[in-house]
Design a protein around this nucleic acid. Structure first.
Lengths: 132, 132
DNA sequence: TCAATAGTTCAGTCATCATTGAAACGTAGC
DNA sequence: GCTACGTTTCAATGATGACTGAACTATTGA
């Protein structure tokens, strides 16, 4: 949480240790599902109870995974009434992608060009990339 | 290894199980280092011995991690004399990134725009993205 | 064929992780 | 305050993963 941004809004620059933690967090079936559900749920997030149902795990287990994801900086939480809403940490996810690509680009831009092309096809860059 | 490409050269489309395996493989310090070294080493790859020295692990341990990475589809190997050259599986890495972004894009293109912008700044797309 | 080199496999150990049920905590409404 | 609800923490278990040294396989060169 102490890294400085890299000059591009909405992207969190991460170091190796943080990347390892994030990848390890994503390297678990239920956690990857949680993140996917939260990402598609949008910035408003989703209550833990609904999330447990959507992913198909017990409340206890969900809490365990959410703590792990939160510690990895991939999700955020805020209370709303008696529920707690969890949401995806989009900048961290972008930073993770950027971390992988940073490797790719070291002297060999032609290697990651396919990935950039894939992204461009997936979601064409908008005129205002300053959204978090 | 049986997935069909998605119409973009150099990118391997992956399913959830494959993504989990890949993320889990990257979620280990030594393995992430191995991948980074191999990525920067380029398509020619690097012999296991040199790789062990570069990462700082024993031959036995390196072999263990390489098997894991290979099983996750993130590295390839080929014999060269009495050495075995390992190289990064760039399409798989691109596919992994695309998998994450595919989540981001579900109905909310503005969410992943920062990542695209970051990539564009990192390595501007070339005119020929058909490199593997 | 023999020795040397490069990597891998094997068996075993220690640590970490995923999962579960029960109990505890905090919040909302009566 | 009391009760119901939503969520987290705790303790315990089984499974998986990381690492090590020794033994094994494959290739090269004499």
């Amino acid at each position: 949480m102490t890294d400085a941004p890299q000059g591009i809004d909405g992207v969190l620059a991460i170091d190796e240790a943080r990347a390892v933690a994030a990848f390890a967090a994503l390297g678990q079936e239920n956690r990857l599902r949680i993140v996917r559900v939260l990402v598609t749920a949008g910035p408003d997030g989703m209550a833990a109870g609904r999330l447990a149902g959507a992913v198909g795990v017990s409340g206890t287990n969900l809490s365990f995974h959410l703590k792990e994801l939160s510690h990895a900086g991939l999700v955020r939480s805020r209370r709303a009434g008696r529920s707690i809403l969890y949401s995806a940490a989009y900048p961290a996810l972008s930073g993770l992608i950027q971390f992988l690509m940073r490797d790719c680009c070291q002297g060999r831009p032609e290697v990651c060009a396919p990935a950039v092309a894939a992204l461009a096809a997936c979601c064409p860059p908008t005129r205002d990339p300053s959204h978090a």
